[in-house]
Simulated assay, not measured.
Amino acid sequence: MSASVREAMLARRSAPKVTEAAPDDTEIVDLLEAAGRIADHASLRPWRFIALRGEARNRLGDALAAAAGLDGEHGARLAAKPLRAPLLLAIVATTTVHFKVPAWEQEAAAAGVAHQLSLLLDDAGWGVMWRSGPHTRHPLVAEMHGLADGERLLGWLYVGGVPAGARPGRGPEIGAATRFSSLA
């Protein structure tokens, strides 16, 4: 593990290319135990993850192509995108009607868990990239995942092994001072 949370965050990079190695379900659940400790108003735990491996990735690709209304070569290219990693973790916000916690806040909590999970996976040596797209919330894609009423897909963490020599170094500064202000 990294020396500090800050160092792990500064070292994190999206991994657009990964190998066929992937963490097993036991490792994912173990990491979710830590990732799930986000700020969660009313402790609703408004999130869940679905692991897509093997043929499930092909079914997702078919659903994406159908949602886009594409067939032929264009449909095949879109359908192949979920095959970029051996493991896709679908990020699902499981919102419920709550008198104190609006749906947007529940989705933010689910996104927080996903981001922390991506940091933990990266810190454990896995390549990770959060992907989404224009058809993430299409009914055909929701059906492929077996989503229930009140569940919304936020995207997928594409996870796999890091190719030899591919661990990038620390990226450029982000200019946080230009994204911060203070009111008194």
Rank of each mutant, 00 (worst) to 15 (best):
M1V: 04
R6T: 10
A8F: 05
A8W: 04
A8L: 08
M9H: 10
L10W: 11
R12I: 03
S14D: 13
A15Y: 13
A15W: 03
P16M: 14
K17S: 14
K17C: 11
E20F: 00
E20M: 10
A21H: 05
A21I: 03
A22M: 06
A22F: 02
A22L: 12
A22T: 01
P23Y: 03
D24G: 15
D24K: 02
T26R: 10
T26A: 15
I28P: 02
D30F: 09
L31C: 08
L31V: 03
L32P: 11
L32V: 07
E33A: 13
E33Y: 14
A34M: 14
A34I: 13
G36Q: 04
G36C: 10
A39K: 06
A39G: 15
D40Y: 10
A42Y: 04
S43W: 11
W47R: 06
R48V: 05
R48Y: 11
R48L: 05
R48P: 11
L52I: 06
L52Y: 01
R53L: 09
N58I: 12
L60S: 03
G61D: 01
G61M: 07
A65R: 05
A66C: 06
A66G: 12
A68W: 01
G69C: 05
G72N: 07
G72I: 07
H74L: 08
G75Y: 04
G75L: 02
G75V: 09
L78K: 07
A79M: 09
A79H: 06
A80T: 09
P82L: 11
R84C: 09
L87W: 09
L89G: 11
A90Q: 00
A90F: 10
I91E: 03
V92D: 00
T94A: 15
T95G: 13
V97C: 03
V97Q: 13
H98Y: 06
F99T: 14
F99H: 14
P102W: 04
A103E: 15
W104K: 13
W104V: 13
Q106H: 09
Q106N: 10
E107Y: 06
A109I: 11
A109Y: 07
A109R: 07
A111P: 02
A111R: 00
A111M: 04
A111T: 08
G112R: 05
G112A: 15
V113E: 06
A114E: 04
A114G: 15
L119T: 01
L120R: 05
L121P: 03
D122T: 10
D123P: 02
G125R: 04
W126V: 11
W126T: 10
G127N: 08
V128M: 08
S132N: 11
G133I: 00
G133W: 05
P134C: 02
P134N: 13
H135Q: 13
H138G: 00
P139I: 00
L140E: 06
V141K: 02
V141E: 01
E143G: 05
M144P: 06
H145L: 15
L147E: 00
L147N: 04
G150H: 02
E151G: 09
R152T: 15
L153K: 01
L154H: 02
L154E: 02
G155I: 00
G155A: 01
G155L: 00
W156G: 01
A164I: 02
A164M: 12
G165S: 08
G165F: 12
A166H: 03
A166W: 00
G169T: 03
R170C: 05
G171R: 09
G171S: 08
P172A: 15
G175L: 11
A177R: 15
R179K: 13
F180D: 01
F180N: 05
S181T: 12
A184M: 07
